[in-house]
Design a protein around this nucleic acid. Structure first.
Lengths: 159, 159
DNA sequence: TTGACATCGTTCATAATGTTAACTATAATT
DNA sequence: AATTATAGTTAACATTATGAACGATGTCAA
């Protein structure tokens, strides 16, 4: 009986691991497509959109901070910022306290763009929420929290 | 009372929409990092890894099929297949029934590589499952299913 | 059966995303 | 004062991806 049960347990684990793999992969693809659509809608590269959104709650950011938040090399950040600057969405100025540092902030046009993107994202996620049975919403959110911590735990284990 | 309740409801919806946005974005980032690590571990570009995995359950695939499954332009598929061919992991042959078509299949080395990657992915997701409280596993999987259908519903609505 | 049209794979030009390494200028430390 | 570290820039390169043009082949209707 014990043997039978443990065999079943192993099967369940296998099934669940595969299911997890499949679902996570599908969610990831959905997100990829979503980001790509968003970039097309705003006629701007994804990296620049992501960069703009970093300024929520920050008046100024430095290049190094942006590279850190975007998780890219600082040389990559330089280029992204340069392109946003060319489009008039951010501006660069010298940090008065440290001549090595450049302070980057949104221009008024950049602020408008950020608000537009925020509204787009918010309404998209409202719509998504609307597709979920109200009785299940809390459950889905809690499950995602669980998944996130588990993924982070695995990541921590591996490194 | 009704007014107060509906105000609260709106607040809850806002909170949940933002929470969803945040969680989905974090999961997406986790996945991105995972794919990048996997590519480094196997010393192969992500696109080539993804392409190899398409052969699970297929002896032969055509270029068009691969482009469709990877959701890329056929010109992109050509290049990916070419690189896998150079590495000796797939081989191309003429379709005897249609001279326009090339049949692509795994070489023995390709099959070994696929098994390696499968094992890697399976053990990773076993590990992930192991991080989730057994009592919650079914709940998490169901929540992900719900989320996936909701995301697909939104996608369908938008197009 | 032949002309029009569609399909498959390839090649090329181009764009976006990203890294590493080298370099300049400045700041901090010893 | 010399060394070391940090911020930002630039250049070379890799990866991922698209779209247009093209050749070879297949399909179908007049």
């Amino acid at each position: 009986m014990n043997d039978v049960n443990s065999t079943i347990d192993v099967r369940v684990l296998e099934y669940q691991a595969n299911k997890l793999q499949e679902l996570i992969s599908e969610l990831h693809n959905c997100c990829k497509e979503r980001y790509s659509d968003e970039a097309k809608a705003f006629r701007m590269p994804q990296a620049e959109l992501r960069c703009l959104m970093l300024f929520e709650g920050h008046k100024y950011l430095t290049g190094i901070q942006i590279a850190g938040l975007l998780e890219v090399a600082k040389s990559r950040a330089t280029v992204i910022i340069e392109n946003l600057d060319k489009k008039g969405l951010v501006q660069r100025s010298q940090d008065p306290n440290d001549a090595r540092v450049k302070l980057i902030n949104l221009t008024p046009a950049g602020q408008r763009k950020v608000r537009e993107i925020e509204e787009f994202l918010f309404s998209l996620h409202q719509q998504l929420l609307g597709q979920i049975d109200p009785a299940q919403r809390t459950g889905v959110i809690n499950a995602l929290e669980t998944l996130r911590s588990s993924m982070e735990a695995v990541k921590a284990q591996l490194s």
